[in-house]
Amino acid sequence: MSQQAGAYYVPHGSRWPIIAAVGLFIFMWGAAHWLDGIEPEGPILLFTGVAIIIFMKFGWFGEVIRESQRGAYNSQVDVSFRMGMMWFIFSEVMFFGAFFGALFYSRGLQVPWLSGEGHGALTNYYLFRGYTGGWPTAGPDAIGGPFKTVPAWGEPLLNTLLLLSSSVTITIAHHALRDGHRRRMLVFLAATPILGALFLWFQAHEYIDAYTHLNLTLHSGIYGATFFLLTGFHGLHVTLGTIMLLVILYRTWRGDFSKEHHFAFEAVAWYWHFVDIVWLGLFLFVYIM
């Protein structure tokens, strides 16, 4: 159905929000059952919820793409999409900000207090006498036993170079799209998810080495918890970003984007640059400092 000039498109009767709500409910229900040790209901419910969510994403995004291609959206809708993506990335900034805050609080305040500095003198004297922990530490009880940290100048440095290179490739691809150079755009866009996949490969190897040779696990006290939560959630975001890049690569190859209209491409590029910036913070504050 064509839209009048200046009219703001609002879909009517969409089934996708209720499908999303049902999928999320079943997913969380299954996760709670699984954590409580209720099997096999827990895993079955959880993966059923995941399947419904995946089905919803393909269906909902496909419908949005079809609406865009038939001209249902005007400039006001485009602004709404851009603002929505900006707020989504802002929410991700707050998400990682919470984990970085936990890291800074632990190493800058909590561990020194437990060691007797500042307001922690009585706590150290009565509860953890003799504890003089520095960072990294597994805490006064050395939870998980002694461990070694991952060397910053090995795989983390390589992964930093990979992600920085991927920011360059997707930027070149974006400029090529706006300049109408299709071949260059496809080559550099294809290189970006390849670099993302290489990052994930080396991170998986890093985790295996940490568990098998360094005794650094998720249970290695406060350091192990913050290390794996920060790097693990970042790896999850790289995984999602790589999938998004592959979808955009397919849509670009199919010819869905033009010089003037390619917001989906831009949104994925924004997300990927955000993931790269977060990694720079991780490399600096988790691996080096």
Rank of each mutant, 00 (worst) to 15 (best):
S2A: 11
A5C: 07
G13D: 03
W16F: 09
P17S: 04
P17T: 02
I19T: 13
A20R: 11
V22D: 08
L24E: 10
F25C: 06
F25I: 05
I26H: 08
F27Q: 13
E41T: 00
E41W: 13
P43Y: 01
L46Q: 10
T48F: 10
V50I: 04
I54G: 06
M56I: 05
K57Y: 05
W60I: 01
W60R: 09
G62L: 06
G62R: 02
E63T: 07
I65V: 09
E67I: 01
G71E: 06
S75R: 12
S75I: 08
S75E: 09
S80L: 12
R82T: 06
R82L: 03
M85Q: 00
M86N: 00
F90M: 01
A98I: 00
A102P: 03
L103F: 07
R107W: 11
Q110I: 15
W113K: 14
G116V: 15
E117A: 14
L122I: 12
L127I: 02
R129I: 03
G130L: 13
A138P: 02
G139R: 03
D141A: 01
I143A: 10
G145W: 01
A152P: 13
A152Q: 08
W153G: 09
G154Q: 11
E155S: 15
E155G: 05
N159D: 11
L161A: 06
L163T: 09
L164M: 14
I172V: 07
L177E: 00
G180I: 00
R182W: 14
R182G: 12
R183I: 15
R183P: 14
I194F: 15
F199A: 10
F202D: 04
Q203G: 04
H205S: 03
Y207N: 11
I208A: 13
T212E: 11
T226L: 14
T226V: 09
F228K: 01
L230P: 00
T231W: 01
V238S: 04
I243M: 10
L246I: 02
T252Y: 07
H261R: 15
H262I: 13
F263G: 10
V268N: 05
W270V: 00
L282S: 00
F285H: 02
